[in-house]
Amino acid sequence: MGVRRPIRKETAGAPGLVSYLRGALEIKVVERVTSPPGRTNITGMDSVSSSPGVTQGSFAQRSLDLDRWMERYQQADPDAPRALIGAVSPALLRFFRSQWDSREQADDLLQETWMRIHRVRHTYRSGEPVLPWIYAIARRVRVDGYRKRRRISLHETAVEVLPELPIRVEQPDPLPEFETLIAVLPESQREVLTLLKVAGLNLEEVARATSSTVGSVKQKAHRAYERLRKVLQTRPEAELREEANGLP
């Protein structure tokens, strides 16, 4: 039906767009919370029926479950770290990946983040949202990781012959990658947009995670949107029209 650009992990552009908007408008299509085999499902704690791979609960409910798991983690419940790691790590990894870290570096940062979370777990306060707490720590780990890499790169010498990179065989995507797209933004705007879109935090939570105010987050996001709109406007109009044909 003329849908030229299938969004990854989506069946078609138009339904994907609608579901994206639903997510953005907090009628969130909840991220799948599936348990690896033999692990406790985080929603299972409240006796919510669950089966792997099924979208379940509301975003708020999931967030509440994470808060409860965090409290149990503080009480040394052996299931708690497993549940938290399983539920939060994919989003954390996406957070690191979307900020220009390689897969290997993102894995390292993920491990370092959990180690720090473990060290300062007593600072989580019952009743407070756990995700801003986690992302505030992850953000700091990313900054430290960046500084460390920069220092190492200053002492490195370039080799004359670079290894040949494997050729990526992928479906051509007319839209730039998320990381490429947001790379045009200043660091602070990129971070806010990543936390909003990739980590799925709301304005209040992003403000908490970045130690700033809601007004400042809103302003940065608006500026980021404006800038991205300008960038995307430079794309040929014909291309946009073809995409429009794919809409219902």
Binding site: R8, L175, K197
Partner: peptide
Amino acid sequence: CGHCRTLAQALDPRRVEAAPSSDTLRHIE
């Protein structure tokens, strides 16, 4: 509005593919 549509699609978080390996998760656990 084509520009808004492109922006909304481009910022779809599902376009960032990343899942930690089971080895990494096990090591952290």
